[in-house]
Design a protein around this nucleic acid. Structure first.
Length: 433
RNA sequence: GACCCCAUCGUCUAGCCUGGUUCAGGACAUCGCCCUUUCACGGCGACGGCGCCGGUUCAAAUCCGGCUGGGGUCGCCA
């Protein structure tokens, strides 16, 4: 006796972009399928012809792949209307369904309906709000609950992994399985993702599509990792885990029953972790692509320079989008002093900074070690603390109070830019007097 | 309202199935200290939780019941 092959499915509706919740449902399906050497079927539920759009479909497929998942088969419900009609007729013929007002209604009686749920155990419904359900609408298209049952049965899905919001759909679907004589599948209703406030995610959250997170500079590894942690735990106090590792140790039993609130803070932290794990070269490539996508990469900037920026910012970047502003002084000629920075500039140091500028100008090989030596020597000669030179210099060069180590920053920017910017600060002070 | 699901730090969770080894472990966030030219990283530390009431038991976060609270569903949407 051979074990039955696991067959699961993810069934998105192309009436919107792939959102966080859908992505996680897909993820659990994928993890379970891969862990059990089963098959993942992608079923596009495009029965609502008016609202389904190619644009959404493309985005959904693209996002699934971008996240690092794949599928074994794909079906489109819009191509299967004949099949649904055939089974509706069967139900009518056997007296379980009837036509009314141009639609087909499935009628049912029951004592109780039992759901075999891998995550929640047995769920028993003793009452349902209705005793009939539309299965074919008056425009001849099937309803969700009907096409879903027919397809899950025909595609031999033996474990249905979906959101908890579908629990209440399950009894009527099970009744249809029974009426049609189909073998009933197992279920796994995964908890919902809630907004930070505890409510439904999609309703109060703006940024819910995977595409949007991608545009904001989140890495696919981070999103997948975070989504896995929402409702599942790899154990051993692990927080950072890759898809390929997770698919080895995933179990449905370890999936929680409780809804989980989405935390941008934690996602940001995970994204930072993945960025820090990148090699400088990889991070540099990421930056290049991101800047290009946002038309923020001047042509004069070369790869070598970007590698240096990557190493400067790897430890201090949470999202690639943060770089859009942080990198401005490095990519553009103009430096704008922030309001916060201007306060430090109240104290004019024309003499000291001029001296520093002249000292720096004399350095032959502009490297951070010699730059630091020059700074220390200048401070000593001027009989002031190093800080007194460091803070205004940083502002002169980048416009802000914060940033990477100053000496590395100076080396990266190069002598020409540095001298020019120090002169600009000196001018700024002169004009204030 | 009816039906269904759920309940450990502010948030995500480990522990719960197989009660004692847990005056509950980790992570994010917050706060403090260290490192340091700033920010960040890193290190160290603090804060903070088993919703409530009963029951079972020598013993309950762990088992049972009720209550309360939160969530979901009640569309010819999916």
């Amino acid at each position: 006796m051979s074990e039955e092959t696991l067959r699961v499915r993810f069934a998105p509706s192309p009436t919107g972009y792939l959102h966080i919740g859908g992505a996680r449902t897909c993820l659990f399906n994928w993890l379970y399928a891969r862990k059990c050497a089963g098959e993942l079927i992608l079923r596009i539920e495009d029965t609502d012809l008016a609202r389904s759009k190619k644009e959404f479909l493309d985005e959904i497929l693209e996002s699934i792949e971008w996240l690092g998942m794949d599928w074994d088969q794909i079906y489109y419900q819009s191509e299967r209307f004949d099949i649904y009609h055939e089974y509706a007729k069967k139900l009518i013929d056997q007296g379980s369904a009837y036509k009314k007002e141009g639609a087909v209604f499935f009628k049912y009686n029951f004592d109780q309906v039992k759901i075999d749920d891998l995550i929640r155990g047995e769920i028993i419904f003793k009452e349902l709000p209705k005793n009939e359900e539309v299965i074919i609408k008056s425009d001849n298209s099937p309803t969700y609950n009907f096409s879903c049952v027919i397809d899950d049965a025909l595609m031999e899905i033996n474990c249905i992994i979906r959101g908890e919001d579908h629990i209440s759909n399950t009894p009527k679907q099970l009744l249809m399985y029974k009426a049609l004589g189909f073998k009933t599948p197992q279920f796994a209703h995964v908890p919902l993702i809630l907004s930070g406030q505890g409510g439904r995610l999609s309703k109060r959250f703006g940024a819910t599509s995977i595409r949007q997170y991608r545009q904001e500079g989140y890495l696919s590894e981070s999103i997948v990792n975070y989504l896995m942690l929402l409702g599942w735990s790899p154990g051993e106090n692990r927080e950072i885990i890759s898809l390929s590792e997770a698919k080895e140790i995933f179990t449905m039993k370890a999936v929680n029953k409780t809804g989980a609130a989405f935390s941008l803070d934690k996602l940001n932290w995970i994204n930072g972790e993945y960025i820090r794990q990148k090699t400088t070269e990889d991070f540099s490539d990421l930056i290049i692509n991101y800047l290009k996508e946002n038309n923020a990469l001047p042509e004069s900037i070369d790869k070598n320079y970007l590698n240096k920026l990557a190493s400067l910012f790897k430890e201090r970047t949470l999202r690639l989008s943060d770089l859009l502003t942080a990198l401005k002084p490095y990519l553009n000629d103009e430096v704008i002093y922030s309001d916060e920075a201007k306060k430090i500039l109240d104290n004019s140091l024309i003499k000291e900074v001029s001296f520093l500028r002249d000292s720096l100008d004399k350095i032959g090989d502009f490297n951070k070690e010699d730059i630091e030596k020059t700074f220390r020597k200048a401070a000593e000669d001027l009989n002031i603390k190093l800080k007194i030179l460091v803070h205004p210099s940083r502002i002169a060069l980048t416009g802000t109070k914060h940033g990477p180590g100053l000496f590395e920053t100076i080396e990266t920017l190069g002598k020409e830019r540095v001298i020019k910017r120090l002169n600009k600060l000196i001018d700024y002070w002169s004009q204030k007097q």
